[in-house]
Computed example of a mutant assay.
Amino acid sequence: MSVQLNHTIVPARDRDATADFLVDVLGLEPAPVYGPFRVVTLSNGVSLDVAQAGEVPALHYAFLVSEEEFDEIWGRIRERGLTYWADPYHRQPGRINRNDGGRGLYWSDPNGHNLEIITVPYGG
């Protein structure tokens, strides 16, 4: 068996609001409750298990998307008036990047997690 990522925990100040935010902006299926988690499932079967947490460190989550999905997600980001950046340090607001021959952008979730969408994996 090859090693694959199955799930990761996403700490949140408000589990339900965070899960709903991810589902809404990324255009995913509703996130069911499983024990203490809201399970946001990605198309490759990996899940983001959103958990209530007192302390929430800012983490980074990157999503590889198609060109069409990029346009849809970017549109939802703009519709919601969310600030986005072309770079992970948030120095280029309102721009996207064209790194590695694709497109990418960063935005923050309600917990300060740095979210990223890219259309081409790093290194092309």
Rank of each mutant, 00 (worst) to 15 (best):
T8W: 11
A12G: 09
P121C: 05
F70W: 01
A86K: 08
A19S: 12
R98H: 14
N6M: 12
R98D: 05
I117R: 06
S47E: 02
V3S: 05
D49M: 11
R38N: 06
D109T: 08
Q52R: 12
T18H: 09
V65H: 01
V65G: 00
D100M: 00
W85P: 00
T119A: 07
P110D: 09
G27F: 13
N44Q: 15
R80W: 02
L48W: 10
L59E: 11
F37Q: 06
P36H: 04
S43N: 14
P88V: 04
P32E: 05
E69L: 05
G112Q: 13
P121M: 00
Q4M: 09
V25S: 03
L105D: 01
D109H: 10
A19N: 11
N6G: 14
T119D: 03
W74L: 02
P57M: 14
G124C: 09
V3Q: 02
G124K: 14
G124T: 12
V56G: 01
A19F: 13
D49P: 02
A86M: 06
S43T: 15
I96T: 15
N111A: 11
L42H: 12
L82T: 07
V3K: 08
R38W: 10
Q4N: 10
D24S: 12
V40F: 11
N44L: 14
L82S: 01
N6F: 14
R13M: 13
T41K: 13
V65C: 08
V3Y: 04
R98N: 02
V3E: 03
D71M: 05
P32I: 05
L48R: 05
F21D: 00
N44P: 07
Y106N: 10
A12C: 06
S108T: 13
W107G: 01
P30I: 04
V50W: 08
T83K: 09
P30W: 12
N99R: 10
E79V: 00
T83Q: 08
N111C: 11
Y122C: 04
P32Y: 14
L48I: 11
W85V: 01
E72I: 06
N6K: 15
D24K: 13
G45S: 14
A51V: 15
L82V: 04
Q52G: 08
L105S: 02
R15L: 05
L105H: 02
G54Y: 10
P93C: 02
E72F: 07
A31I: 06
P93E: 07
A62W: 08
T41N: 09
R13G: 14
I117C: 05
Q4G: 03
H113Y: 09
E67W: 13
D16I: 06
A53K: 09
G45A: 15
I118A: 10
F70T: 00
N114C: 10
P57D: 15
S43D: 15
Y84I: 03
